[in-house]
């Protein structure tokens, strides 16, 4: 009708569909990784969690031994959950940056599957998280950390840790999409993250907390997740897995709603 010769035909192009979703998610995940995987970033993803691991281990190993706890076995799940949290927070920062630079608006104005923008983000977070998780497990192995459950247990451990990361990323992603201030959103999310990590069984057993704090620690979602990771590594009592799954499901539902809303509004 417009006689626009040479232009791509302006007929409705299906931008949905699984083929587009997979292809465009992969392209965007690749882009996210190229943007966030500079040499310094990779070093940060591997070295920083290891610094935390060896630091905590050096300071507290003797003390925990006195209470009959092998800290080399106790600590790795905590470091993994902490690092997975930090990785999710960096996802928020990267999303906010994409919004600020206009990249998000550009992608949303293109015939690109809307699921691909989010899936691409999650996939690249997953890869970044996987690198850190494997680095922590490898270092922990050197210091005596073992999976009583063998390879299957190790795989389940990594899978659970990645699930935690992705659920958290949906939530932090929502925060990132709602913000145009990458630095501010990072700082804001770090604030609740530290106390949540500390007031849990991540770094000390429930018995180590004053009695009035124990309910908080016992019912913390962080405890649920860390306990589940320990259960998978030890293979003894798998009850914590149910609690963790329930928490993750609830969080996923809440976070998805927030993320969908934020995505629609992000310009």
């Amino acid at each position: 009708m417009s006689g626009a010769a040479g232009f791509a035909p302006a007929v409705a192009v299906a931008e949905g569909g699984p083929v587009n979703l997979v292809r465009q998610s992969a392209l965007l995940a690749g882009r996210n990784l190229r943007v966030s995987l500079g040499a310094a970033a990779v070093a940060g993803m591997v070295i920083t969690p290891l610094l935390f691991f060896f630091g905590f281990l050096a300071v507290f190993r003797q003390m925990f031994a006195a209470h009959g706890i092998d800290f080399a076995q106790y600590l790795p799940p905590a470091i993994v959950v902490m690092w997975v949290t930090f990785t999710a927070i960096s996802a928020a920062v990267l999303f906010a940056r994409d919004r600020r630079t206009g990249m998000l608006a550009r992608l949303r104005s293109m015939p690109v599957n809307s699921g691909a923008v989010v899936a691409g983000r999650l996939a690249s977070d997953g890869v970044r998280g996987l690198i850190s998780i494997c680095a922590v497990i490898a270092a922990a192995h050197v210091t005596g950390f073992r999976f009583a459950t063998g390879v299957a247990g190790a795989a389940a451990f990594v899978l659970l840790a990645l699930t935690v990361l992705l659920v958290l990323s949906v939530g932090t992603g929502a925060a990132g999409l709602a913000s145009t201030e990458p630095e501010a959103v990072g700082a804001t999310l770090h604030m609740p993250a530290m106390p949540l990590l500390m007031l849990s069984t991540a770094f000390a057993p429930v018995g180590g907390f004053p009695s009035w704090l124990r309910p908080v620690v016992e019912y913390s979602p962080v405890s649920a997740v860390v306990d589940a990771l320990r259960a998978v590594a030890e293979g003894t009592d798998l009850a914590p897995l149910g609690r963790a799954a329930a928490w993750l499901l609830v969080l996923l539902v809440v976070f998805s709603r927030a993320a969908t809303r934020a995505y629609r509004r992000a310009t």
Binding site: V13, V35, R100, G102, R106
Partner: peptide
């Protein structure tokens, strides 16, 4: 029909929405 609109337009925003860490060609 937002998909039809998106297939008909090219947008450049107020900012240069390109990735700093990639090359122009990338």
């Amino acid at each position: 029909d937002p998909a039809g609109v998106r297939a008909s337009i090219a947008l450049t925003g107020q900012f240069a929405a390109v990735d700093q860490l990639l090359t122009g060609r990338q």
